[in-house]
Design a protein around this nucleic acid. Structure first.
Lengths: 132, 132, 132, 132
DNA sequence: GTGGTCTAGACCACT
DNA sequence: GTGGTCTAGACCACC
């Protein structure tokens, strides 16, 4: 049976963002949000690769980066697991901070487009409702 | 005296986004917003390159892409000018559409982070106020 | 062994037409005619450059333009491929349309030269036979 | 009153071909065809420039090249005139030869497009009829 | 292995 | 003055 976390991972092949980066960022966010909880085991490199139809090396690279960050743990012989994380990194404040750069970019683009704060906020609200 | 448009262009050298892409995107937005208006002439490749301390070819590449898009116009032997654009592309709706992808990404990241719409909107509002 | 498509590419170094443009035009035509078919992979930038004895950047520029046009496709980390194309663009009518501008120029020049349609058609027929 | 030859000159501003080249080629063809006959006077640089809305230097460059070729003549103090030309250069054969390169290009493009001689000839015939 | 980016510099062409 | 082309070479990133 398929690993439950596989449903939490998706790729945008059209994006300029490298595949391994997309994986790293998504997993980091899922862990921060608790959707992937400490001590839970991650799907194997091969499973992820098969599920997303990409090269196993790409998944492997993502896992290696996450391990270097200390976000996930390699356990000899068995599957990698989500590392125990400082609870504070999971606070709403910390998670909002992870979104800051993206929102700042959006704000700058809005300014360059000559849009008012109200216009942009309304549009964002609409999109948030649509996609949830 | 320096070309007035030079003040509208800035680069983030640390970003993963290539320099020429940053230029293309910024100019496209400035034109959509009317800050760079049709028939006005753009600063020369050499001026922009000197002003931003980058190689002229990089600027030239950006201009070439904008010309291929039909956003700016080549004039034999003299400076490039902002092309006549369908007014509708400058409407608030069209400009909001240019922001859509960015906002959708932010929304998706917010979801992955397990944040509520309210939390994200407040944070965005705060950032919009800060930066204006 | 050499990539089969390399034989389909040739340059006229004396021409006023830039090298990258010659490449773009030739590849576009070969794809329209089906001689380069969808999903087939293109020779690498370095291969083409070596084969034609030009700088790799020149080839790269041609490929970038074709990609922007949607005629060929980038694949992360591996060779570019011919994009899936609307079959209608490969119809004889569409291919004749790609020749229209050139033929119109010839017609205009013929008129300026004061030649009759018959004279020109005969000459063209002779040339078509010679070169095939 | 406007010089009669002005009607024989037109420019394609969208073309990549430089303006002065377009002028040179057109005038050369009009002379070969006898539409501009020996000893007739040419419109002044300023007239041509005004009529085509281009820079006088561009016209001047075209005239200089034609003079260097011996196709037109500078007469001190008065207008330039069409030079006496070897009649043989005006023969139909010579004029067809002036069209050869263009037709050869068309033939090569047709081959790259995978078109048959018949298809191309028919299309060319249709265009010749349309434009005359 | 693949393509992409950027630089430095030469040279050309047009107006 | 303007932009365009091409080269040589370095360096990076991805798969």
């Amino acid at each position: 049976m398929a690993h439950p976390f596989l449903a939490l991972l998706s790729l945008n092949p059209g994006s300029a963002e490298p595949l391994y980066r997309q994986l790293v960022d998504q997993i980091r966010r899922r862990i921060a949000s608790g959707q992937m909880a400490p001590e839970q085991s991650l799907p194997s490199v091969r499973e992820v690769a098969a599920s997303l139809a990409i090269n196993p090396m790409t998944v492997s690279k993502a896992y290696a980066l996450l391990e270097a960050e200390g976000v996930i743990q390699r356990n000899r012989g068995s599957a990698m697991t989500v590392a125990l994380v400082d609870r504070r990194l999971q606070s709403a404040a910390a998670r909002l901070a992870m979104l800051r750069t993206t929102l700042e970019q959006a704000a700058e683009q809005a300014r360059q487009l000559g849009l008012t704060n109200e216009q942009v906020l309304q549009q964002f609200q609409r999109i948030l409702k649509e996609t949830r």
